[in-house]
Amino acid sequence: MQTEKEKMLRGELYNATDPQLTAERHKARDLLQQYNNTAAGNTDLRSFLLQELLGKCSKGLQIEPPFFCDYGYNITIGENVFFNFNCVVLDVMPVTIGNNVLFGPNVQLYTVTHPLNWQERASGLESGKPIYIGSHVWIGGGVIVCPGVTIGERSVIGAGSVVTRDIPADVFAAGNPCRVIRDLSTEKRILTV
């Protein structure tokens, strides 16, 4: 028989009030409370807490507190990633973030979703869909990324956008719902050393 965690990780309907999942969320909340209350200069403690939460702390990871997530272990982060203040990652499914990604303040990444049928929803069951964010992406402040979305490499998402579907690489996209505004691949690139 499958556990509720196994169902969750497969993207199937599962019961989030399962004791194992509840305990894992409580552990993450305890680590986050400690992290969010650390002094700005206490980088060793912050690194240790992120390591405990995420399982791996990549080079150049910077997360400004407060930061919130469900489990932590479903978040994979590349090198040189920056989260500004008050970001939320609901990671019931994998959230994969490439290298050199910037998140503005109040960005929210939601992998969790609920049934559209009210009777299923009333039963307390939920499911999730993974999120993938490519390398060199910039996500502006207040952006919401919905379940199952992929954002292609080098794209920019304008502040306040609600990303409900995949965004290709090398574009500027914005709005609610978020849509491609312009192609960045044809613009002259300025390289700095």
Rank of each mutant, 00 (worst) to 15 (best):
E64T: 06
I75C: 05
M93T: 08
G41P: 11
F103I: 14
G128K: 05
G55A: 15
I77M: 01
V81Y: 07
E52A: 11
E64C: 00
N117Q: 13
S135F: 00
G140V: 00
N86S: 14
G134E: 01
V145L: 05
Y35Q: 12
V88A: 09
I133K: 02
V149F: 05
T96H: 11
N100Q: 10
R25I: 09
C87E: 11
P105W: 10
Y73T: 05
L32G: 15
L49S: 13
G141D: 11
Q34E: 14
G124E: 09
C69Q: 05
D44F: 12
N117I: 06
A40E: 11
F103Y: 07
V89N: 02
Q51L: 08
I97E: 08
L90S: 09
F68Q: 07
I131N: 00
L61V: 10
I144D: 02
L109C: 09
V137P: 04
L45A: 14
L32S: 14
I151K: 01
W138G: 10
Q33C: 03
V95R: 04
I151E: 06
H26K: 13
N86F: 04
Q62E: 06
T96K: 10
V137F: 02
N84H: 01
L61K: 10
E120S: 12
C69R: 04
V101A: 03
T96W: 00
V81N: 05
N74F: 08
Y132V: 13
A28Q: 01
R46K: 15
L53F: 07
V92G: 01
L50H: 07
N106E: 09
C87T: 12
N86H: 14
P130I: 09
I63W: 04
T96N: 06
L116C: 05
S123P: 02
F85Q: 07
G141Q: 09
I131T: 01
G60Y: 00
W118S: 13
G152F: 04
E126S: 12
T150Y: 04
D91F: 03
F48P: 00
P115D: 12
K59H: 00
G141H: 07
R121S: 14
S127C: 15
G55M: 11
N100Y: 14
T113Y: 02
